[in-house]
Simulated assay, not measured.
Amino acid sequence: MDADRFWTLPGVTGGIRREGFTVLAPNRLYRPPDWDAEIEHLAAFLPEQPVAVIAGSNGCSAAVRLALALPNRIARLLLAWPATAGDSTVDSHTRAGLAALGASDQNIRALLNGQTLRGVTDNELATLTMPVSVLPSAPENPFHQRRTVDSLRRVLPASEELPGFPEPPRPDFPSHLDRFLASITKFADR
């Protein structure tokens, strides 16, 4: 999944731009060996001034790692459809996919390990200082379970939960686009 398929083709980046925002939607690093490599890659896209970051699915882990590494550059953080960690069925599916791409067992463990989110401990999550909002998948699915949102809200008690929506690549997303854009632009404009 790349940024075009997740954010651009479903109309999210264009909709945010129409609301007057500058949008950066970089692709995540292709086959990163670890989270540090991913953060180094993403940090190169950040402007000097603090920005609102909207992350989706597994990108939530990357965004949290980025916010932990560069807290002064992230003004607000929205974790949309956070990918569920620690589910044996989901993890085995993801592990098989990563192995098929040639990832080593060590790299797979590094990418999948975590508590509420992959690649992040709950103690690390609890140190985030910027405002955080969480957007659940509605309806939930095996990869984006409600329990992940509930756990994030427990670890980040000051976080806000936004209304849930299906993920942009899903066929039922277009009917939710306008409400989704209203929700996330309100988040970014605070």
Rank of each mutant, 00 (worst) to 15 (best):
T94Y: 05
A3K: 02
Q115R: 09
A96F: 06
V51F: 07
Q49E: 15
L112I: 11
R179C: 04
L77K: 04
I39R: 03
A3Q: 09
F165N: 02
S57Y: 05
A37P: 00
R147I: 15
P82A: 06
G15E: 07
L79H: 04
K186D: 13
L181F: 04
L79D: 07
Y30E: 14
H144W: 02
E40Q: 12
V90G: 01
I184P: 01
F21M: 04
T148H: 09
Q145P: 01
V90R: 08
G11S: 06
E160P: 00
E38H: 02
R17H: 08
H41D: 10
P50H: 03
I108R: 01
I39Y: 07
V134N: 07
D189C: 10
N72P: 00
P166T: 12
F173E: 05
T121Q: 09
N113Q: 15
P142R: 06
P163E: 13
E124I: 04
S61H: 10
N123I: 13
V132Y: 09
V155K: 03
M130T: 09
P10F: 12
D87T: 08
C60V: 10
V53R: 06
V23Y: 06
I184M: 05
F173H: 02
A69G: 01
L70N: 01
F187C: 04
R190K: 11
I54T: 03
T8D: 14
A103D: 10
E140G: 03
D91S: 14
I54R: 02
F173Y: 11
T89D: 15
I108S: 01
G97N: 13
S137V: 01
D91R: 10
H176S: 13
G86A: 09
L77W: 10
A100P: 00
A62L: 11
G114Q: 10
V51D: 05
A182D: 14
R73G: 03
P82G: 06
R179G: 04
P171W: 11
L9P: 00
R146S: 14
L29A: 12
G164Y: 07
S175K: 12
N27S: 13
S92V: 03
R147Q: 13
V134M: 11
L125I: 04
R65A: 15
R153P: 00
G164F: 11
R17M: 13
D87M: 07
D87L: 06
E160G: 00
T8M: 08
D105N: 14
K186F: 07
G20C: 09
N123K: 14
P71E: 12
A52W: 05
R28E: 12
L162V: 09
S159C: 12
F45H: 15
P131T: 09
L29M: 12
A96C: 02
I108N: 05
V120W: 03
G20H: 05
V134K: 03
T13M: 08
G11C: 08
A63D: 09
V149P: 02
A44L: 10
I39M: 06
A67F: 08
E161V: 15
R95G: 01
A63N: 08
R146F: 03
D189E: 14
L101V: 02
K186L: 13
E140N: 02
G20E: 05
E167D: 15
E19T: 03
D122F: 05
P142W: 07
D87S: 12
L152P: 01
N72Q: 14
G102A: 05
E140S: 15
T129P: 00
F21C: 10
P168I: 09
P166R: 11
